[in-house]
Write a protein that binds this DNA or RNA. Structure first.
Lengths: 181, 181
DNA sequence: GACAGACAGTAGGAAGTCCAACTAAATTTC
DNA sequence: GAAATTTAGTTGGACTTCCTACTGTCTGTC
């Protein structure tokens, strides 16, 4: 799904609000917060992250929907595709994707139902289940990647340099919260 | 599976991974993407936003749980509290909070069940429902605000200046996606 | 070796989000 | 003024996420 440069949906986001607000609701909320509660920089940043995540999630999912994937499932597929053997234990998938074990189960269930991955027993550890990407899964990943990479509009408005800065700032937050390190 | 309850959790995020990965999974995914797919700056930024949102959501919700609120409900409460009359039409709430009408219904249902808000009919437009914050709601907002403002650890790792930069970059993204403007 | 404890994964449930479809009320159009 | 359209909100369903609790398997200690 390509979004033409010129007027397509005004709002690519969430559920297509009829019209964008004429002001920034987060900035306004920050002003009120500042007046009546206290310093607002942190709250504004938190809210901004929340909101941009919604926008991006929606944009990416919209691009992936024709391919029968969500962003979470796409990420799982890419992870398996990039792995050495094309298979990983579910636990490892959870660590890499930062997902709860039950979320991994859910995602793998759906990918498996679509024939994109299959569960295979671990050769030595009978507790462990390996998830292997199928040929159809590799094919699907390829198509979906094309769709996703065309969604750079998700971050249009930022220069390359700004995009990198954004990633770096967010990495600081993630590290400070024990996401890795 | 039992996740140890450390006095101060190593990972405030998602579901408390036992141990943080020794490397940044997003940076590693970006490397592989770069090698095998193409430029990765956008994907890395998208993934980072997604992940930080999870971290913050979890951190804030953890702080709010003792007060019986989620971040979404807290935001709604704050919005009403800051409004002129202490009440707003549900539609307006949806616009300001960037939520789907059904999500507003859901949130208001729960807040109303807790006695923090109440639905009242609009004086002239019988289609419209006004949502009014109750005294108990104002009280709860006050307590919850204290809890949330103490959660600046959600963005620890950033200086004040960096926090502002982050908000500004995200605002650019939001504006480019028609969030406001 | 036996057994307590840790670990891998799954089932069921709650919360939140969106979508599609619906009712009721207001507004626009002719 | 009647009919068509738009708007506000709700209901029911699908999906994702996490949590709690459980089964089965491995591992370290005695």
């Amino acid at each position: 799904m390509r979004f033409p440069t010129v007027a397509y949906p005004l709002v690519v986001s969430g559920f297509m609000t009829e019209q964008p607000l004429p002001f920034d609701p987060i900035a306004r909320a920050a002003e009120l917060w500042e007046q009546r509660v206290g310093p607002s920089t942190v709250m504004a940043a938190v809210t901004s992250v929340m909101r941009v995540q919604q926008v991006l999630q929606s944009a990416v999912d919209t691009a992936l929907r024709p391919h029968g994937l969500t962003f979470a499932r796409f990420e799982a597929l890419v992870l398996l595709f990039h792995s050495q053997r094309g298979s990983l234990p579910m636990r490892v998938m959870g660590q890499r994707l930062q997902l709860h074990p039950t979320s991994v189960t859910n995602i793998v269930d759906r990918l498996e139902a679509d024939g994109l991955v299959k569960r295979i027993p671990h050769p030595t550890d009978r507790r462990t289940t390996l998830v292997e990407i199928t040929e159809e899964g590799k094919q699907r990943r390829s198509e979906a990647t094309t769709a996703v990479t065309s969604v750079d509009f998700g971050l249009r408005g930022l220069t390359e340099r700004q995009t990198v800065t954004l990633t770096d700032l967010l990495a600081k937050v993630r590290r400070a919260n024990g996401d890795f390190g």
